[in-house]
Design a protein around this nucleic acid. Sequence first.
DNA 1: GCCAACGTTGGC
DNA 2: GCCAACGTTGGC
Length: 152
Amino acid sequence: MTEINYWLMKSEPDAYSIDTLKNDGETLWDGIRNYQARNFMRNMNKGDKVFFYHSNCKPPGIVGLMEVIDLNIVDPTQFDKDSKYFDPRSNPESPRWDCVKVKYISKSDKILSLPELKNLFSEDELLVVKKGNRLSILPVKYHVAKILLEKI
DNA sequence: GCCAACGTTGGC
DNA sequence: GCCAACGTTGGC
């Protein structure tokens, strides 16, 4: 019996938006080049739910929900010289970066904006409301996730 | 192992 | 555009 956990993953809508995911159906969450964020992905299980967060836009906030459907996938962009995520220090024998595959579940009727999230949760409850937090993948506590699921 | 310089993220 | 936060790099 594998535990279902909850996460939040950020993407700039100009780069990859909830609408793009809705259209694609599923996608590889590649291009993560931060060890902490990568390690969170390594802790994911199939069936985990992920809140999709639009960052670096107005307003930033949660815009939908997705689900983890595949694990431990070698990130192909690290070997692609034409990719902005190319990593010359990674090699195929021991890939440095991996990722998960997610599928679209739902898009919110209305964005749950960062100011609203700050009203609902403290920094300790939900890391994304913490000032200066740059991590693009964050765990979400169960009791927080339950509240979020009712609001998106 | 320390730390200064530098780069990136992302809200405002 | 500014800047706070903080990860990464490289010299020593």
